[in-house]
């Protein structure tokens, strides 16, 4: 029905215009210093209530010809003006820079870290970041020069996820005015496919040269300890040793790499591209957990068999980026 669609079409058009305007006015950057052209400010509902109180007192002052009540209302009005300037000042001069983004599986929350920093010797208090439904913890830049803020943003689709603009807002110090800005830090996070369980045909296993390859990162026979490296799985950390010495050690094992599995695109059933990726994702995780070496074979991308965290990540990245270049 064109009649019913007209308002929504209009709304779409307006939204489009708004977004375009924002894009022109606030282009995406990795690092943004807030200045007057980026900050918007309006009274909050409480601010309107406060102004109403001031107005009532003004009327009372006029009608009772009571100069002190009149002055009281002038004072409330002046405090409101100060509140506008201070709430604005609480955002202005803030430097927001993109931090890292942590990937997530589709349907889970991706974590984006942004850094708030002072550009002047001035305090910033009670600043929130929000993105659609999510609202971060309050940030206070009083004693510290810089704070990281984590934004947990729900993902739905596999691929490269760009959250776009998020909001940085504050009502400090009085809660009467609400200052905010839209920031696009040009961040993106990878969204892995949502793991979906499926049987993997055993015929797809390929026998390798049996018992000859010694995997350095096997998990069967304990070899000894070595210093922990950030890429090591926490499962292999020797916690008892940690308790004794306060240093992280990784237990080293070796195993005989008896089989190598190939996770092949063609072997996953189904016609739905996303679902097939989800199945592959499931097996990447499953095999990593079990410590079996595996390779990934996707159309246009092949990852030779290996084990370990970086390998797992490479496979997940390949799955996430599949079809997205």
């Amino acid at each position: 029905m064109p009649v019913a669609n007209a308002p929504s079409a209009l709304r779409r058009m307006l939204r489009q215009r708004w977004q375009n305007w924002l894009r022109r006015r606030l282009p995406a950057r990795r690092r943004v210093t807030l200045d007057q052209k980026r900050i918007f400010i309006l009274p909050t509902w409480m601010g309107l209530g406060y102004l109403l109180t001031a107005l009532l007192l003004f009327l009372a002052g006029v009608n009772y010809e009571n100069s002190m009540i009149l002055n009281f209302s002038f004072f409330l009005g002046s405090l409101f003006v100060v509140s506008i300037l201070q709430t604005y000042g609480n955002l202005s001069g803030l430097v927001i820079s993109a931090g890292h983004a942590e990937p997530a599986f589709a349907g889970q929350e991706a974590k984006f870290v942004v850094h708030l920093a002072k550009s002047r010797r001035k305090q910033h208090c009670s600043i929130y970041c929000s993105w659609h439904g999510f609202k971060s913890e309050a940030c206070n830049l009083t004693a510290v020069e810089e704070v990281p803020v984590s934004l947990l943003i729900a993902t739905s689709q596999r691929g490269r996820f760009r959250p776009g603009r998020f909001r940085l807002q504050t009502v400090y110090p009085f809660g009467l005015c609400h200052a905010w800005t839209w920031i696009d830090l040009d961040m993106e996070a990878l969204v892995y496919p949502k793991p979906v369980e499926c049987p993997l045909a055993s015929s797809q296993q390929e026998a390798d040269q049996e018992g000859t390859l010694v995997s350095a990162e096997g998990q069967e026979d304990f070899d000894g300890l070595r210093g922990y490296q950030p890429s090591d799985s926490l499962r292999t950390v020797d916690w008892k040793a940690y308790a004794r010495s306060n240093t992280l050690y990784t237990k080293q094992f070796h195993g005989y790499q008896s089989t190598t599995r190939w996770l092949r695109w063609a072997d996953v059933p189904g016609a739905d591209l996303e679902l097939r990726l989800s199945h592959l994702c499931y097996w990447v995780l499953e095999l990593s957990r079990e410590g079996e070496p595996y390779g990934l074979d996707l159309p246009g991308r092949t990852i030779s068999p290996a084990l370990g965290k970086s390998h797992e990540e490479a496979c997940l990245v390949a799955l996430a980026e599949f079809g997205h270049g």
Partner: peptide
């Protein structure tokens, strides 16, 4: 500090804002 900032504006309003007579009888 906020109130100290509000006072000058209040004084300007107090002395210059046009005084009007009662709008209705109370």
């Amino acid at each position: 500090s906020s109130m100290a900032q509000a006072v000058p504006l209040m004084l300007v309003l107090f002395f210059l804002f046009p005084r009007i007579g009662p709008i209705w009888e109370l």
